[in-house]
Amino acid sequence: MHLNTSHLSRRTALQATLCALASPAAFAAPAKFDIWPHESRVPGGVARLSLGPAAQRPKVKAGDFPVLVAGDMIEWTAIVGIPLSAAPGVHRVQVDAGEGLQSLEYRVRDKRYQEQHLKVSPKTVDLAPEDLARHERERAHQQQVMALFTAQRSEDLRMRVPVPGRRSSSFGLRRVFNGQSRNPHSGMDIAAAKGTPVVAPLPGKVVDVGDYFFNGGTVWLDHGAGLLSMYCHLSRTDAKLGDVLATGDAFAAVGATGRVTGPHLHWGVMLNQTMVDPALFVPA
Rank of each mutant, 00 (worst) to 15 (best):
S103H: 04
S6P: 00
V42M: 03
T196W: 05
G187H: 07
T17H: 14
V209N: 05
W220P: 04
L49G: 05
H117L: 09
V207M: 05
Q152H: 10
M146K: 08
D156I: 07
K194Y: 01
V199F: 14
T247V: 15
I79Q: 05
H7G: 01
W267M: 14
D238I: 07
G52P: 08
H233K: 00
L21C: 10
G258V: 08
S121F: 10
Q114H: 05
K240I: 14
K32T: 06
F213G: 02
K194F: 04
H264M: 11
Q152E: 15
A47P: 03
H38F: 13
R109S: 12
G89T: 03
G217N: 04
L202H: 00
A151V: 07
A250F: 04
P53H: 06
K59C: 01
D243N: 09
L84I: 13
M1Y: 05
L271I: 10
T12W: 06
H185M: 07
H38L: 14
H233A: 06
V46G: 01
D208K: 02
E39C: 05
L228C: 03
L132M: 01
P30L: 06
P83E: 08
M230Y: 02
A192Y: 07
L157R: 00
L84Q: 12
P30Q: 04
K205Y: 06
T261A: 11
V161L: 15
H135S: 14
S186H: 07
T218P: 02
P129N: 10
A284E: 11
L202G: 01
A55P: 00
R137Q: 12
L157M: 09
L49Y: 02
G187W: 14
P164I: 11
T150Q: 12
T77L: 13
S170T: 09
T12A: 13
D64F: 12
L221N: 03
V42Y: 01
G226S: 04
V108E: 01
L18D: 05
G204S: 07
Q152V: 10
L228E: 00
T12I: 12
E115W: 11
S103M: 07
L228P: 00
E155W: 04
H117C: 03
G44E: 10
E105Y: 04
V219R: 03
D211F: 04
V90H: 13
A22V: 00
P263R: 06
E136V: 11
G100F: 14
N4F: 12
R158S: 12
I190E: 00
D189V: 10
D243T: 06
T124P: 01
L104E: 09
A128C: 03
F33G: 04
R134L: 15
L127S: 04
K61T: 13
